[in-house]
Each structure stands twice: as structure tokens, then as C-alpha cells.
Amino acid sequence: MNKLSLFGLLRLVIGRDLMLAMRRRADVLTTLIFFVMVVSLFPLGVGPELDMLRKMAPGVVWVAALLSSMLSLGRMFSADYLDGTLEQMLLAPQSLSVLVLGKILAHWMLSGLPLVLMAPVLGLQFDMPVQALWVLIASLLLGTPVLSMIGAVGAALTLGLRGGGVLVSLLVLPLCIPVLIFGTGAVEAVSSGMSAVSHLSLLGALLLLALVLTPWVTAQALRISME
């Protein structure tokens, strides 16, 4: 019996969540299907004029990504809470923040990354130019981890509450607005012939800030919720 290193713990947590997701693939797929559906509903709602759709595309894709990431937040800690694994996580002789970071990364791989990969296909539905598509992917790649991180705080705060699913959206959505603004702004900047660098670097700054703060805040929230 050897001591497990910090990195070993991170790998264990990520590996475990991915393995669990592989054994109930339906959960991952529903989020992705929801994303595709929401995006596809917009042309039906506002009409098929390509000019307007091209203009709306980044906003639509980003809002849909925001909503579908809310959808999967409930799963982040609740299963572990109900079966007692979360108790054991709080008792891990390693930093709880690192453990939480592992869970956030796993959540992003299962809910954020599929959206990033799916987005170009949806962008084509809206006739987005190739250059804008690339920026859309870049902005989602930088922004969706922030959504998972802020979402983790909300998910930890609402653990085990009645109506936690709706409540978590109420708490998290306002905090995600900057991500939405810079994410869509990047694509719009490129579409109007400007550089997207400033938007993307602001998104990158948000990502760094969230990476530093949210695992710790989430760990505190988990301790409060487990009391």
C-alpha cells in the first residue's frame, strides 16, 4: 500500500468520472442533443434568411452552450452526494480543491468539449464563414471551462436542495454573462473584419481567474453543504 500522490489523485478522479460516464452514455448524449436542438430551433423561430442567421449565429450557439452546460450541472456532485462518495472525498488526505478541480475538468470533458466539437457543424447551418467558425471554436474552447467552473460553485451550493436544478441556473447564469459577452464578441469582431485577439485574451484572463478561484470556493461550498 503506497501513498497516492496529488497528481495520482487528480488522475483517479478524472478517470473515475469518465469511466462512470462511459457506463451511462445516455447522460452525455442528452446534453449534446439538447444543444443541437436548441440551436436548430432558432431558424425555425425567426425565419431562414441567411443574412440574419449569419448575424445571430454566435449568440445563438453561445446561449445554447450556456443552457446545456446548466443542464448537466445537477449531475456534477449530486450522485456522489447521494451515495456517500462525497463524504469520502471530503476526508481525502489531499487538498479538496485539487479533487474538485479534477471533477470540474471531467465535467468539462463530458459536457463542454462535445459542444466545442459540435459547434462548427451547427455554425454551418447558419452559414458562418470559415474564419468566424475557427474563432467560434477558440472562444468556446476558452469559455466553456469557465462555465463548468462557475457552475461547480452553484452546484456545490445547491447540493441536496429541493428544486436545486432550477435554483442552480438562477445563481449561475448571471455570473456567466461576461463569458457570454466576450465569447460572442470575439466572433462578431472577426465577422466585422476586426481582430478577435482582445476578446479572446479577455476570455483567457477569465479562464485563469476562474482556475485560481473557483476550485477553492467550490471546496468551501461543498464543506458548507455537507455540514
Partner: peptide, 27 residues
């Protein structure tokens, strides 16, 4: 728990308020 959980939310919110304000102005 209500006090402590909402306190944490308020603190996260107040860190976020300047970011939100700046981003909305930018937008």
C-alpha cells in the same frame, strides 16, 4: 447552512460585479 451558503454566493457575486460591469460596458 443558509447563512454560510448565501454568504459564499454574495462574495463570489461581489468579485464578479466589476467584471460584469466592465463586460457590459464593453459590449
Amino acid at each position: 447552512r443558509a447563512d454560510r451558503a448565501s454568504a459564499l454566493l454574495a462574495i463570489v457575486g461581489s468579485v464578479n460585479v466589476p467584471i460584469i460591469y466592465f463586460s457590459v460596458k464593453w459590449w
